[in-house]
């Protein structure tokens, strides 16, 4: 975490697409009159989605105008939640978990990969494809180490399969979401060590 400011290079204008505008009106209609400000997070989120995953100043003001809020109120929300990017990000925005379980399982190797391939945090690679940020726990510790790329989790990463994943993404090939080691969701890696028998049956495992 650090001080977050709006990007220095800003586009001149931001306009919701007609579909998004209609969607936003629906969201606003959910709330009683005078409480439109409640829709600020969904509105900002949709604006961010529309604008290549980051929020320009014009989008903040557009949302504030739509919800009849002072600009500073929207600014407060946008700077409070780190899910809102205030600067341009790569086409593939990588949030790499560096919290204890991931760190113990080798997230440092992944950071080295990113530093070499993409550069330092918060910079967009020259081809515009990647940018990355080390974030706190994303709650997939069973499958550590992991990273979130745009909306999806990629788990059980190693330096090698992470490198391949980035190559595939860059080349536009299909990739598997979730575990990259082939295990199903967060089942134990290797084999089952518990709940191996049904109730009443003899435990056939050679467990201790």
């Amino acid at each position: 975490m650090s001080v977050r400011r709006l990007a220095e290079q800003q586009p001149d204008a931001f306009e919701f697409t007609p579909q998004n505008k209609a969607w936003l009106d629906q969201q606003i209609a959910k709330y009683p009159d005078g409480r439109q400000a409640s829709a600020v997070v969904p509105a900002l989120w949709r604006a961010q989605k529309q604008n290549d995953n980051w929020l320009p100043r014009a989008a903040l003001e557009q949302v504030a105008d739509a919800l009849a809020m002072p600009y500073i109120r929207v600014m407060e929300v946008a700077t409070f939640y780190t899910m809102f990017n205030l600067e341009p990000v790569g086409k593939f925005y990588i949030q790499l978990c560096g919290t204890t379980p991931c760190m113990l399982s080798g997230s440092d190797d992944l950071i080295a990969v990113l530093k070499r391939r993409v550069g330092p945090q918060r910079t967009v690679s020259a081809d515009g494809l990647f940018s990355w940020l080390e974030v706190e726990c994303l709650g997939a510790c069973c499958n550590a180490p992991m990273a979130q790329i745009n909306d999806d989790y990629y788990e059980d990463l190693t330096a090698a399969n992470f490198e391949k994943l980035l190559d595939d993404l860059a080349a536009g090939r299909d990739v598997n979401k979730g575990s990259q080691s082939g295990r199903v969701s967060s089942e134990p890696a290797g084999r089952l060590t518990s709940l191996v028998s049904l109730y009443g049956e003899r435990d056939t495992s050679d467990g201790d």
């Binding site: 977050r4 809020m69 002072p70 500073i72 109120r73 600014m75 407060e76 700077t79 409070f80």
Partner: peptide, 9 residues
């Protein structure tokens, strides 16, 4: 007027 706010966290 809602001029001031607390930005960041």
């Amino acid at each position: 007027t809602g001029d001031m706010g607390a930005i960041g966290r």
